[in-house]
């Protein structure tokens, strides 16, 4: 089948950036294996005083989206401090590429893992994945552990078996572990339903003023703090019926992942305020 790759994925596949291996690299992250069908070797050069990544190169064995994700990752980390770089999630990589087909999300997960591994290598830390790699193996075909499956379900809010396979490959081989993965998903969903939910407006007709206040509340309490973690922010410009206009500011403005961020804000507002809401991003004046 022909994958529905975005123009950016094609560009980074056909003309990848930062291909190679840095000599005397400060950190190296090797993830994946040839048996699994994809593998990535990431090398980084770090400015030790500024704790900043000044160069990154990759070598990747894999499909079009694996190569494109690696190329995009190297572009994204250059110039970032190590702490900033560690905040890049696999979803950020996918969003920066204009999205990846669902079945290919594991390619972006591989990028994120290689980055963590390279930074841990530089810092002389134990690679975070060691924890994931410990514990019981659920998927024997791809050697995926219970810890890793639980981590990805939580980080990426996965809800279905298909999601888990798309993100980790687990369950995509012989299928013998499908029951166990579904059990883990059910356990996670049950644990989530115990947590207090944000106050819901469902079922209750809001006045216009109540509605505006609730939108403002969600943005102040749930959205802003998340964006501030990335030195970004947003202004609420207008609320007109279901249309909520916002403007990205700080690091969020012009960020390649802005499209993803606005989609996330829309999801939040739809969940709490009104399923009809459309978030529109207004360009800076």
């Amino acid at each position: 089948m022909v994958w529905n790759y975005s123009e950016l994925v094609k560009k980074h596949f056909f003309e990848p950036k930062n291909v190679g291996k840095i000599d005397n690299a400060d950190g190296t992250g090797d993830v994946g294996s040839i048996a699994c069908g994809d593998a990535l070797s990431l090398t980084i050069k770090v400015d030790k005083e500024k704790d900043t990544i000044i160069d990154a190169k990759f070598k990747t064995f894999g499909c079009g989206s694996a190569i494109a994700s690696s190329s995009m990752l190297t572009e994204m980390v250059k110039g970032k401090t190590l702490d900033e770089a560690l905040k890049i999630t696999n979803r950020d990589i996918a969003a920066a590429l204009g999205g990846l087909p669902a079945e290919k999300m594991h390619c972006s997960v591989m990028g994120r893992e290689a980055l963590e591994a390279a930074i841990a290598d530089y810092r002389g830390e134990k690679v975070a994945h060691d924890e994931e790699d410990e514990g019981r193996i659920i998927c024997n075909c791809f050697g995926i552990t219970e810890n890793k499956i639980r981590k990805v379900i939580e980080e990426d809010h996965l809800a279905t078996l298909e999601d888990v396979t798309n993100y980790t490959k687990a369950g995509g081989g012989c299928g013998a572990c499908i029951d166990e993965i579904e059990t883990i998903l059910e356990e996670y969903q049950n644990s989530q339903s115990d947590k207090p939910k944000p106050k819901q407006a469902k079922g209750k007709k809001l006045t216009n003023l109540e509605r505006i206040a609730l939108i403002q509340e969600v943005i102040d309490n749930e959205v802003r703090p998340e964006l501030e973690k990335d030195s970004g922010g947003l202004d609420l410009i207008d609320i007109d019926g279901p249309r909520v206009a916002i403007r990205m500011i700080g690091q969020c403005s012009g960020c390649r992942a802005a499209g993803f961020t606005s989609a996330w804000i829309q999801e939040k507002l739809r969940e709490v305020v009104d399923p009809e809401i459309d978030v529109v991003v207004v360009e800076e004046e």
């Binding site: 596949f13 056909f14 064995f61 499909c63 694996a66």
Partner: peptide
Amino acid sequence: NVEGESLLLMLDQKGICASSGSAC
């Protein structure tokens, strides 16, 4: 040491239609 889907994408760019048994 190279992956089938990548090969197919590059062949396709040149107008060559083939197929692969790779995982992807």
